[in-house]
Computed example of a mutant assay.
Amino acid sequence: MSPRPYKIPESVLVVIHTDDLQVLLLERADRPGYWQSVTGSKDRADEPYARTAVREVQEETGIVIGSPEVPDEALRDWGLENVYEIYPVWRHRYAPGVTHNTEHVFGLLVPREVTVTLAPREHLRYEWLPWREAADRCFSPSNAEAVLQLPRFVTPVS
Rank of each mutant, 00 (worst) to 15 (best):
S67G: 09
P141E: 11
E113W: 08
G107H: 02
L124V: 07
R121Y: 03
T155W: 04
E85G: 04
S41C: 14
T18D: 10
I8F: 09
T155C: 05
G40L: 10
V89K: 14
W128A: 12
G107Y: 01
G97L: 04
D20M: 00
R44H: 12
V83E: 14
R31A: 09
P3Q: 06
W35E: 04
P5L: 04
V83R: 15
A53F: 03
H92R: 10
E81D: 13
C138M: 14
E73W: 08
W131G: 05
V157N: 06
P96F: 04
L26E: 13
E56D: 07
W90V: 12
W128E: 01
V57P: 01
S2M: 05
E133T: 13
W128D: 06
H17P: 00
G33Q: 06
L109K: 01
V83M: 11
P9G: 07
E27W: 02
Q149D: 07
V57T: 13
A95E: 11
G97R: 09
T18V: 05
P68H: 09
W131Q: 08
R4D: 10
N101Y: 00
V83L: 10
E81L: 06
V154I: 15
Q36T: 14
P141F: 09
E47S: 05
M1W: 07
R91P: 00
V105P: 00
Q36K: 10
P111F: 03
A95T: 03
V38H: 01
G107M: 09
V70P: 01
R51W: 02
A144M: 05
L80G: 01
V114N: 08
G66A: 06
L80P: 00
P130W: 00
R91A: 15
C138Q: 14
A45M: 04
M1A: 14
V83I: 14
R44E: 12
L129T: 03
E56F: 02
N143Q: 15
Q149W: 13
S37N: 15
F153D: 13
R51H: 11
